[in-house]
Amino acid sequence: MKAVPFRQFVLKVHSRCNLSCDYCYVYEMADQAWRNQPRRMSETTVNHAVERIAAHAVTHRLPSLAVILHGGEPLMAGTGFLADLVRRLRATVPAQVEVSMQTNGVLLTEERLKTLTDIGVKIGVSLDGDARATDRHRRFADGRGSHRHVDRALRLLGQDRFRNAFSGLLCTVDLEHPPLTTYKALLAYEPPAVDFLLPHGTWVHPPPGREADSVGTPYADWLLPIFDRWYDQQETWVRLFGEVTQSVLGGTPAVEGLGLRPSTVVVVDTDGSIKQLDSLSATYPGAADLGLNVSADSFDTALSHPLTGLRQGGIKSLAAPCRSCAVVRTCGGGLFTHRYHGSTGFINPSVYCPDLLRLISVVRDRVSADLARAAQ
């Protein structure tokens, strides 16, 4: 297959975090390489990364691309550092550059928000619902909950002067908390979008409440009451439901972990290492490593790596049960990370396969029934 150019560049500008979330794939799962990473991306590494992104844009004539500032916690790099990086990107890359940041929100202040807003950075905040749900997992190292700090930040971000910078909320699904209670807590901040993230797990280490060989659907069962409310009321854009619905209507899902569109995400770590999906840290040590670095290697070299080919391979790269599945066009085999098995690598259905099948089937049937009624 002809490789598809990268269009989403995740820059891990800081390798440490000010929270100690117990489900974090970076710090709590298989790959502990973060311990050996520089704390902050150096000026030299920033220059190399920006130059490589620009060269990729030129080579592939990209009219636009996205840069995601990530970590660890990216705000620990300092807003002055981030502002200089963004200005350098926009001055060097000959394409429209959309810059966003995913933060836990704890360090967001009025001054920092003003800086980020002025340079056009879109801000996504991680929050797992109300105080009880959030503080169950998203805690400081000393055990204190983070919810009140994030609540303060989100109230600032919701003000008219900063509102345009707010890109949405990222919520990791927790089966221990009622779905509608969680959703209502998120809606209280009037987010422009909500992303529900399935906890990272594999066939080796299944996610909480999900037995690897079970046909049960605990995650679909948790998500479906929220889907029903979202479908009826449309209070915000829920990316998972929106992408599945669009796929049912004939569109192509545009998010990682759904559909058969080739993955165009690449990661640059704080030491300049070019890597695959960051969430591969949940599988085994070194799973995301390509042996490349922006100091010496182009992103085109990363495009030719076999693991990139597997991530971009579409239906041909999926396990046999997936290729013959009725919802494969929407599911796409699930997130690449969630397919991992110790003996067969990534050529497996997602560990969430039963959940994805049920969720997509229910959405498809609901949309199809409405279309049939409308056609009468």
Rank of each mutant, 00 (worst) to 15 (best):
D151S: 06
L82H: 08
P354M: 13
G71M: 05
C353P: 10
L157C: 07
S343D: 05
F166G: 14
A57W: 02
L154F: 14
S324F: 01
F346A: 06
G80D: 15
V248A: 11
T270Q: 15
V99S: 13
A254K: 12
G158N: 11
D221M: 04
H70L: 00
A185R: 11
L116H: 11
D135N: 10
V265E: 00
R311N: 03
H147V: 02
L156Q: 13
F140V: 08
D278H: 06
A55I: 09
T283S: 05
R311Q: 04
I123G: 14
N164V: 05
R210I: 04
A185N: 09
G158D: 10
A3S: 15
D22N: 04
N293R: 01
G314E: 03
G272L: 03
G313S: 11
D195R: 13
T44R: 13
L307A: 12
Q159Y: 07
R364A: 15
R229N: 05
N104Q: 10
A282V: 00
L303A: 01
T45F: 01
G242R: 08
D228I: 12
F241T: 02
K184V: 00
L310A: 14
A165K: 06
V294D: 00
V4K: 07
L258Y: 01
V50M: 03
R132K: 11
T59F: 06
D160Q: 15
G78M: 08
D128T: 11
G216Q: 05
T301S: 01
L62H: 07
